[in-house]
Amino acid sequence: MATESMRTHPDLMALRAKYDAVGETQTAQVVDGLTFLTGLYLAISPWVVGFTGFTSLTGNNLIVGIALALLAAGFASAYGRLHGMAWVAPLIGVWTIIAPWVVSGNVATTRTIWSNVVTGAIAVLLGLGALSFGMRRSR
């Protein structure tokens, strides 16, 4: 009973409406779309760049890329409910940057490192952008 009353609490409903309005802005839609594309690129990057012989890094990029793309799709469709997960996107970006050394050991090639570092940096910046939408004050 208490859970049901919390779901319909006026303050919670107003907060969700605020986050939904922020998520519908053109800037938020661009950031979410670019984050989605970054996630898709990360997922297919092993085949685009050619991570031959790096099966663990290939699997890592596939899984992490799909996770980032799904997170961005969630932000685009329901930011009011998912704004609390916005911190995950920059964290995925940081993981993407360090993954060639952590997952592959010290044998990653220049192209695998560059691909992950650039893609991770983009994911960090876009993730911080998505995170900032929930921190903006209403006017």
Rank of each mutant, 00 (worst) to 15 (best):
M1A: 00
M1H: 02
T3H: 01
S5F: 05
T8C: 01
T8R: 03
T8G: 03
H9T: 03
P10H: 05
L12W: 05
A14R: 14
K18D: 05
Y19Q: 08
D20H: 08
A21Y: 04
T27M: 12
T27L: 15
V30T: 14
V31A: 14
T35Q: 14
L37H: 06
L40H: 02
Y41S: 14
I44L: 15
S45G: 12
S45L: 13
S45Q: 15
P46C: 05
P46L: 09
P46M: 10
W47P: 04
V49Q: 12
G50Y: 06
F54Q: 13
L57W: 07
T58C: 04
N60A: 12
N61K: 09
N61P: 03
I63C: 09
V64Y: 04
I66H: 08
L68W: 00
L71Y: 03
G74P: 02
S77M: 12
S77L: 14
Y79C: 13
Y79P: 09
H83C: 14
G84I: 10
W87V: 05
W87G: 06
W87L: 02
V88A: 08
A89W: 01
L91W: 00
I92F: 07
G93Y: 02
V94S: 03
W95Q: 08
T96S: 13
A99M: 02
A99T: 01
P100D: 00
P100I: 00
W101I: 00
V103N: 06
V107K: 13
A108D: 11
T109A: 14
T110G: 09
W114Y: 05
S115Y: 04
A123D: 06
L126D: 10
G129M: 06
L131S: 13
F133T: 06
G134R: 15
R137I: 12
S138K: 07
S138V: 06
R139W: 06
